[in-house]
Amino acid sequence: MSPGAGPGGGRGTAVLRVLGLLGLVGVVATVWLGLWVTPPDRFMGNLVRLLYLHPAIAWVMYIAYGIAFLSSLLYLWPRTRALAWDRLAGASSEVGVVFTGLTLVTGSIWGRPTWGVWWTWDPLLTTTALLFVLYLGYLAVRQIPGEREARARRSAIAALVAFVDVPIVYFSVLWWRSLHQPPTVDDPVTGKTYVHGSMAWTLLLSFVALTLVYAWLLAHRYRLAALADLEEGEGLELAIAERRAEAGGVPARGEEPAGADLVGAAAGVPDPGARGPGAGR
């Protein structure tokens, strides 16, 4: 099992740090280009600057769910079954849900001045909103207690159940709308705005930068999931070791902390308190 299995230290590897740094630089550059360098649009004015944020966020959302779905399939497929896929699916859909929320929020902020409403029952919007709650449900399923393998299988099936629904939801909402009136909302990227020059480059950069941010978040979430699994496994051994030391009687008492430290060090889990700050980064 790859990166997370042997976590070095509390904050991940050098590769991860470089990845995070690149993502940060990319985002800062996107903000600078998007807010200062690129010109305002002829029709949308300064509102066009959301173009450098909203589509890239939505793009990451699709990638995240795609990867979550694929890794769930790989877990269910007997030949490729490994807990690593389950962790990847969990990590990716967590990031996906965050980016779905951001897609909805940024889209709404964009929609208010351009369409005059915060929300419209456009097929894409409605599907995205349902996607958000569908995958919130999936994350809740992941929290159901149970044996590790059982949890992984249940989560993979739940991911499959949710994913099959996405096209059905999309088409049903499309038909539902089209019976009333044709969708009135053009796609801002292809329909209304002609993107060229510095705008095109900034748009491209925003996609790259946010994909890097996604990869960085994914790797960290994966690493934490691996640590949590490790703690779950090693925690039991630790408890058994402590119990044995206790049963050994009073003389063994002096060895108890040393033994506990040894197991902790072998597990690569510094101490329970160190997980807090790690989770924030």
Partner: peptide
């Protein structure tokens, strides 16, 4: 948990 999982999933049925 069940309503959270169930309602978004069956949204197409409600529409149809």
């Amino acid at each position: 948990l069940l309503p959270l999982l169930f309602f978004p999933l069956v949204a197409p049925i409600l529409l149809g």
